[in-house]
């Protein structure tokens, strides 16, 4: 087992403190995992084990939830996670082409992180913004009416 860096040790301390309020309560796993993901950026194996041990929940239960919900990631994600909406409306208005374009421009596949750690690509279910289809979601921001030029603009904007 690799030795934890000082930075990692601090993140685990932060996680332990964050989990304190969930102990002994039921129905808190998703909230606890969301907080863990905010702290670490994603949910690696060690973090899931930490959550399971702290909350005395079986690890299989933690993994069951993490592997079910697409909002949880078990691999590192970029600073900007570009989620292409694959809902019906976006799909018929060219979401697939958009996804391909994004992959070509960034040289990435869904689930990968760019070398500089800035970008990763994902797909998402309907974001509810069908009127603006096709849509790309970055963090809490939605970018509607996306096309080839829109992608270029977006990437340029995020690089600054």
């Amino acid at each position: 087992m690799a030795v934890k860096s000082a930075r990692e040790t601090e993140l685990y301390h932060q996680l332990t403190r964050a989990l304190e309020k969930y102990k002994g309560k039921s129905g808190v796993l998703i909230a606890a995992l969301q907080e863990a993901q905010q702290i670490f950026g994603y949910l690696p194996r060690q973090v899931m084990i930490h959550v399971a041990n702290e909350l005395t929940i079986p690890l299989a239960e933690v993994y069951s939830v993490v592997s079910f919900y697409s909002l949880f990631s078990t691999v590192p994600v970029g600073l900007h996670r570009l989620e292409v909406c694959m809902g019906t409306a976006c799909y018929v208005r060219g979401a697939e082409k958009l996804l391909q374009g994004l992959q070509d421009k960034l040289g990435l596949k869904p689930g990968e992180v760019s070398a500089d750690g800035r970008f990763s690509i994902a797909t998402t279910r309907c974001t509810g913004a069908c009127g603006a289809a096709p849509v790309i979601k970055v963090g809490d921001e939605l970018y509607g009416g996306m096309n080839e030029e829109g992608l270029d603009r977006l990437i340029k904007e995020l690089k600054q």
Binding site: R45, M48, P58, L59, A60, E61, V62, Y63, S64, S67, F68
Partner: peptide, 19 residues
């Protein structure tokens, strides 16, 4: 003991231990 759960989603879902 509780080592098993349903893991993964949809067609890939299976009963198994974590990971």
């Amino acid at each position: 003991v509780g080592i098993y759960r349903m893991i993964e989603r949809s067609f890939n879902a299976v009963a198994g231990p974590a990971f």
